[in-house]
Every structure is written in structure tokens, then in C-alpha cells.
Simulated assay, not measured.
Amino acid sequence: MSVVLNPYLSFRDNAREAMEFYQSVFGGDLTVSTFRDFQMEEDESELDKVMHSQLNAPGGIVLMGADTPNRMEYTPGGSITVSLSGDDEAGLRGYWDGLSQGATIVEPLEKAPWGDWFGMLVDRFGVNWMVNISGQG
């Protein structure tokens, strides 16, 4: 038996665009299902919104996401930050560079007091990200 914990991101009307952007950053395979596909929404104007999407990227990265129906409250970014960390410097810097496109940099990717390289940003979809590259003396 196993358990997997992964982020499930919420969007308002742009989940497909966001998930395609993340696929361009991380690579991998993306599946997208709409409310129409599962006959899960009575509001005709929302049938083509994303009910569920999943990106399975190399290295075990899994992101899921969906559009929040108009009848539900939506707060961009909420109180969640997605953290990418490890010792694959080239890979993590590549993710940082990709996520930085159109982003607000909160903390530049720089040498941190604890010895790693660390940075924080809010991507163009309002999702908070942290990147920590360890073991980079």
C-alpha cells in the first residue's frame, strides 16, 4: 500500500491555460476533463470549464487542477505554497526560470543563510511557489 500527496490547484476560468503552462515548464503528460465530459454541471455557461486535470511529469511531479464553478468562492493562491526542492540544480533552476515567466518574484533565487539556493514567486495564475536547491556549496 502507498499514499501520495500532491497539490490540487483551483482556478477561475483558466485551469486549462494554467495546466498547459505547467506542462510547458515541467514536461510530462496532461489529461483534462470538462464538466461536460461527466455531465456534472447544470449551468450551460460552465460546461466547458475544467472539472479535473492532472499533469504527470518526470521525477514524480504530479499537479492536479480544476476551474472553480461561479457558485463557489474562489481566492487566488489561498493559503497554499507549492514547494520544489532537491539537489538537481539544473532541473530546479529550469523550473524556476519557467515559472518566473509573467510571475511576481517575492524572493529572488539566491544563496540563502542556510547554505542552499532559495527563491519564492507568485506565478501568473496566482499560485505561490518556493524553490530550494540543496547541497550547492
Results as ranks from 00 to 15, higher is better:
D48R: 03
E20L: 12
V122T: 15
S2V: 15
G119I: 06
E107W: 00
S53Y: 10
T68M: 13
I80S: 10
S83L: 12
S83Q: 13
F21D: 01
P113I: 02
Q23F: 06
P108D: 11
L63C: 05
P7E: 08
G135Y: 04
G77F: 14
L84R: 06
T104V: 07
L63K: 03
T34W: 04
E89R: 09
V50T: 15
T81Q: 13
G126H: 05
Y8N: 03
F118P: 04
D88H: 04
S79G: 15
M72D: 15
R124C: 01
H52W: 12
P113V: 02
D67L: 05
Q23N: 08
P108Y: 09
G28E: 07
K49T: 13
G126A: 06
N128E: 05
Q136E: 01
L121H: 07
V50G: 06
G65R: 00
M19Y: 12
D97Y: 10
L9V: 11
G59V: 04
V4D: 13
F125Y: 14
G126F: 04
W129T: 01
P58R: 02
D13E: 15
E107Y: 06
V32S: 08
G135S: 03
L63I: 10
V32D: 09
Y22L: 01
D37L: 11
G126N: 04
F125R: 04
E73I: 03
G91D: 12
S85Q: 14
G102A: 00
T104D: 11
G77Y: 13
K111A: 09
G78F: 13
E73A: 14
T31W: 14
L121N: 08
A15P: 04
G28V: 06
S53W: 07
N14V: 10
L92H: 07
Y95E: 02
R16K: 15
P76E: 12
M120A: 11
G86L: 09
K49E: 12
K111G: 00
F38S: 13
M1G: 13
